[in-house]
């Protein structure tokens, strides 16, 4: 089946109408901006200050919201109805992800404006890494949503996983546990923070190429994993 822009737009339009009436989505979009404003008053340096809304957006605004939206479709049996319509798996997944992605990008953009770092050309690499990580987190959110049977189950099973991605890079060094630090060193969020710190220090792409490769691998693995699980778990 060919990709239909008409069907994709119909799903995006539905997702938008649904998202703006969903308090969970609105809260998850507002919280990173509120945190940024709060931490800015504490006088943190730009790199660390920016890393907080970015990690929150990836784990919560993108992945957790996506997981909740997908599991809600399963719980309310609407995904089944969509699957039996002419919409293809790709149209449904892209349509569902588009609004999550758009909200996430807008929230990070507002956070960047609030923090106001001196932007250089090297930030383009950072933007690219963020977009790759965003795709990966939306794929992970979709997987969590497909595996969960209800929205509540998403919170129970998915939230701990996403929290590890979010707070792991921040707290693992404090725990001084070599095993934990090794695990966290493979997380894409750890690499994103490292890249952010390097770029804000004025270093170029050569300092972050390992981080870029890590996020690229995570993204490349998460998309097929998401499609496979979608085909297996799409019917509630």
């Amino acid at each position: 089946m060919t990709f239909s822009m008409r069907r994709f737009q119909a799903i995006v339009q539905k997702e938008w109408k649904d998202a703006i009436k969903n308090p969970q989505v609105l809260l998850m979009a507002a919280m990173p901006i509120m945190f940024t404003l709060l931490f800015q008053r504490m006088g943190m340096e730009a790199g660390i200050l920016l890393s907080m809304p970015i990690l929150f957006v990836l784990s919560m605004t993108a992945a957790f919201v996506q997981a909740s939206m997908v599991s809600e479709e399963k719980e309310k049996h609407t995904l089944r109805v969509l699957m039996l319509s002419p919409a293809s798996a790709i149209e449904i997944l892209f349509g569902k992800s588009f609004i999550t992605m758009l909200i996430s990008i807008v929230v990070v953009a507002i956070s960047v404006v609030v923090v106001g770092p001196t932007l250089t050309m090297d930030y383009l690499w950072l933007v690219l890494m963020f977009l790759l990580a965003l795709i990966m987190f939306i794929a992970i959110g979709t997987i969590i949503g497909l595996i969960s049977r209800t929205v509540q189950e998403t919170s129970i099973s998915g939230l701990p996983v996403l929290l590890i991605f979010m707070v792991g890079p921040m707290f693992a060094p404090m725990l001084k546990n070599e095993f934990l630090e090794t695990i966290v060193s493979y997380l894409p969020t750890d690499h994103l923070i490292h890249a952010l710190t390097e770029i804000t220090k004025g270093n170029g792409f050569s300092a972050i190429q390992g981080d870029f490769l890590n996020i690229l691998i995570w993204t490349a693995l998460s998309i097929p994993a998401c499609l496979i699980i979608y085909r297996k778990r799409r019917f509630d």
Binding site: A10, Q13, K14, K76, H77, T78, L82, A87, D236
Partner: peptide
Amino acid sequence: NSGLYERLSVYDNLELFCKLY
């Protein structure tokens, strides 16, 4: 098990499927 989008109106629910079909 035929679900509906509860936060949307009756019209919005049907509009989606009009466009899909």
